[in-house]
């Protein structure tokens, strides 16, 4: 096992790009290799050792045996763990854009917040963000219809706009709240949101499942009420409680599933059953 510890010496106003410093590339590197390496900053490259003290301990035969620990203020360090396929990266700070983007394996743990595009188009591995994330978590790049296709993202805080955009596999769990259009254009996979959702989750979704445990602001007309289900089982995980199940987005003939907690969203139940016998069971439930 090789442990590479980065200790920040100074920060830069122009972001450092760490896409080349991933376990796949550096598992054979010793301290002398890091001393020679120049990191891209803007249109130039500067010695990495101007910005970080690097300590290498142990040996590694493959990227999986590498553990990178990055200490310091990483708010201007972007592309951390971008395209990595194995190993572990631990960031002891908030990080800049593109953390874990296009990663296919390994683990990244961010002990802070992440800027936009965290875990974009990742196909495998595990990304844990202990703070909040900004826009496009686990989403797709512009012009691409497939976002995250595999792996798992856990956000302990809140997620920004269009979290899980074009989600095509894997799982995103947000323990806090989500901003608008969570899971827009989703075609596969599972999104679990423990907190509230501002409005319009699952816009134009084709397939997949979104589970919302908190309060839902607004629901799109493209979702059709299906039934009220108790303790739904989604890919082996049972969610306790009663959930209102919708199918949509019918604007796209979508067959996606949207489950929202019935106890928290009693007003949504009230939208049905007022005049139509089809929703008697819901009315009965509401009267309980």
């Amino acid at each position: 096992m090789k442990t590479i510890t980065f200790k920040q010496k100074k920060t830069s106003s122009i972001a450092l790009e760490f896409d080349e410093l991933i376990p796949d590339e550096i598992y054979t590197w010793g301290e002398s290799d890091f001393n020679k390496y120049e990191v891209p900053i803007g249109n130039s490259r500067f010695p990495l050792t101007d910005y970080f003290d690097i300590k290498v301990e142990g040996e590694a035969e493959s990227p999986d045996e590498v553990k990178m620990i990055i200490n310091g203020d990483l708010n201007r360090v972007k592309y951390i763990g971008c395209k990595m396929s194995g190993g572990e990266i631990l960031c002891n700070s908030s990080v800049d854009l593109h953390v874990g983007a296009e990663m296919s394996g390994g683990t990244i743990i961010v002990d802070g917040n992440a800027a936009a595009h965290a875990g974009r188009e990742m196909s495998g591995g595990y990304l844990e963000i202990k703070g909040n994330t900004k826009e496009f978590t686990g989403a797709s790049y512009i012009g691409e219809w497939r976002g995250m296709t595999g792996g798992e993202i856990i956000v302990h805080g809140n997620a920004g706009k269009q979290c899980g955009e074009c989600l095509s596999g894997g799982k995103i769990t947000v323990l806090g709240n989500c901003d608008i259009l969570a899971g827009i254009h989703m075609s596969k996979g599972v999104m679990e949101i423990q907190g509230d959702v501002n409005r319009w989750p699952g816009g134009q979704m084709k397939n997949g499942t979104i589970v919302i445990n908190g309060k839902l602001g607004r629901l799109l007309e493209g979702f059709v009420f299906d039934e009220v289900v108790d303790n739904p089982d989604i890919e082996g995980k049972v969610y306790d409680g009663r959930f209102i199940k919708y199918t949509g987005d019918i604007g796209l003939n979508g067959k996606g599933t949207l489950l929202i907690n019935a106890d928290v969203n009693r007003d949504k139940l009230g939208e049905y059953g007022e005049s139509d016998d089809e929703y008697t069971s819901i009315r009965e439930y509401r009267n309980l």
């Binding site: 259009l181 319009w200 816009g203 799109l220 007309e221 493209g222 059709v224 009420f225 604007g251």
Partner: peptide
Amino acid sequence: DYGFYNAIRAVLKGKELSQDVI
């Protein structure tokens, strides 16, 4: 805007709108 356009698309697909005001 988004909710409004989504409702138009739903109607174009033949859906009856469930909310009175969108």
